[in-house]
């Protein structure tokens, strides 16, 4: 028979959930150890999203909210990359949803109390499904950094929030992409909740000048890796044992 299991998550390469430098975590991060158990259909299977949900402009944040074809303020960027699993297999049909601040560092959200202006031509949300090679691409505006209350007022480095669904509920990922060279990266408590330097660096989109020079916009490359699923065959095992 054929037993499938998700590769165990390596928590050394993940952020600490209980990380008081990020003040909001103090009363929200659970204190007890998580329970590990063997994967079942509940974790290995997952929702798959159909192409029909994706509109033509869903991955173009420079146009999907623009009024009378007015461009949002700020400089245009392309954010692109691949979604693969830990075995380097590309994942086709992965759903990526992104959200971000506008070029002034303001979110189109009632709870954003930052005094920066909203941009009437920019909502800051986009989504797409990866192609057969796991490829995705968004056309958007460089998000601004923004202040927020933490240990006093601190500034978030420029970032784009990513939500990703692969093929299984256990592959579900929510993360943020940062930008190469941002001086605010080194003091950000959310970034620093990841102790492992290589893991931290994997969240930084790399400036791709080859592409930037040919398309009059800056391009950043951000590859995403979701958990792998192991498949093991037990020849002499009877079902139910």
């Amino acid at each position: 028979m054929n037993v499938k299991s998700l590769i165990r998550r390596n928590y050394n390469k993940q952020p600490k959930v209980d990380f008081p430098n990020y003040k909001s975590s103090i009363f929200r991060a659970p204190k007890n150890k998580k329970i590990s158990f063997s994967s079942s259909d509940s974790e290995i299977l997952g929702p798959i999203f159909n192409k029909s949900i994706i509109g033509e402009l869903d991955n173009n944040l420079t146009l999907n909210f623009s009024k009378n074809n007015n461009s949002p303020l700020g400089h245009k960027i392309i954010v692109y990359g691949t979604v693969s699993d830990q075995f380097t297999n590309p994942i086709e049909g992965a759903l990526i949803e992104i959200w971000q601040a506008n070029s002034a560092g303001k979110y189109l959200h009632d709870n954003d109390k930052n005094s920066a202006p909203i941009d009437p031509n920019f909502a800051g949300c986009g989504r797409c499904l990866t192609t057969s090679t796991g490829y995705y691409e968004f056309l958007t505006i460089q998000p601004g950094p923004y202040p927020y209350p933490n240990r006093g007022i601190e500034w978030r480095p420029m970032h784009i929030h990513f939500s990703v669904f692969g093929k299984s509920f256990g592959q579900r990922l929510i993360t943020q992409m940062y930008f190469e060279g941002d001086p605010l990266l080194k003091n950000c408590p959310m970034v620093n909740s990841i102790a492992d330097e290589k893991a931290k660096k994997s969240l930084i989109g790399a400036l791709d000048t080859s592409r930037s020079n040919t398309q009059n916009l800056l391009a950043y490359k951000f590859n995403i890796v979701l958990r792998g699923i192991k498949q093991t065959y037990f020849e002499n095992r009877r079902e139910g044992l």
């Binding site: 998550r9 830990q86 709870n111 954003d112 990922l173 929510i174 969240l203 890796v225 979701l226």
Partner: peptide, 15 residues
């Protein structure tokens, strides 16, 4: 497996 899983980050207040 030869790649590490991409690390999580908070979804933040504006998800």
């Amino acid at each position: 497996e030869n790649l590490d899983e991409t690390p999580f980050q908070t979804a933040g207040p504006f998800l």
